[in-house]
């Protein structure tokens, strides 16, 4: 059996206030190393909320989450940040590159925070990552000088900077044209299948979701499980 990277047990995320809202409702799942998982569902169903919980950006109201066997609910904010830095790479719909930093500097940021490599080695690794995504000529360009597809590839390179075992992508093709989307889809699929890494993608794109090893559908914050004999129950009127 493959090594489990993420294990979620009955994760609940509830927002307080006068009218409490349940964003995530008892979600349990396992994600194995080398697996490419797509999370789908209608808008507002809680897909991104699940992703943020898996990425330790948000804390569950209840339930337990294990990352590489480490139980995360007892960790403080700094320990969670350290886990995010070393174990998780994020890719967002709006790229979220720092606007004042060049493509190269954006990719170097996680490595600089981790501080395991020398300055030269960081620069070399960042340049290699960008070159692998056909951005070798764009190293010193600012995000505003890059196209959407290029920006998203820079964001993917940044997510891979510290070589994390888990990549989480929130609608990575949502802001891209067809050509750029296909390019990003191919890259993301290759990431999952190319090495010791698990990839979880939240997407609305049916083609993208169907190309995943596994598809999880979230509806009203819960994992939706299809009823096997549901089709037979549907009566089509003459």
């Amino acid at each position: 059996m493959s090594e489990i990277v993420v294990k979620a047990e009955k994760l609940v995320r509830r927002l307080g206030g006068e009218v409490p809202v349940t964003l995530v409702d008892e979600v349990s799942l396992d994600i194995a190393m080398g697996e490419f998982v797509a999370i789908t569902g209608p808008s507002g169903s809680g897909k991104s909320s699940v992703l943020y919980l898996l990425g330790l950006l948000d804390s569950p109201t209840s339930g337990r989450l294990f990352l590489n066997g480490v139980e995360t609910s007892r960790l403080d904010d700094d320990q969670l940040a350290d886990l995010r830095l070393a174990e998780i790479g994020f890719v967002f719909q709006s790229f979220f590159l720092l606007p004042e930093f060049s493509a190269l500097e954006n990719v170097m940021l996680p490595m600089q925070r981790l501080g395991r490599l020398s300055g030269g080695a960081m620069r070399e690794r960042a340049a290699d990552l960008l070159a692998a995504f056909d951005l070798g000529e764009q190293l010193h360009k600012l995000p505003r000088q890059l196209s959407g597809g290029q920006s998203q590839r820079v964001a993917i390179a940044r997510a891979l900077a510290n070589d994390p075992p888990l990549i989480l992508a929130d609608e990575p093709t949502g802001n891209l044209d067809v050509h750029a989307s296909q390019n990003v889809m191919r890259i993301v699929r290759d990431l999952a299948h190319g090495g010791n890494r698990a990839v979880v993608v939240v997407t609305h794109e049916p083609f993208f979701a169907e190309s995943a090893d596994r598809m999880i559908t979230i509806i009203d914050g819960k994992i939706w499980t299809p009823v096997p004999d549901r089709k037979e129950a549907i009566v089509v009127p003459r």
Binding site: L57, A81, L85, A86, F90, L97, R113
Partner: peptide, 12 residues
């Protein structure tokens, strides 16, 4: 940008 940095792993 603060949110991005935190998502990368920067501490408060």
């Amino acid at each position: 940008d603060i949110a991005i940095l935190k998502s990368i792993g920067f501490h408060a």
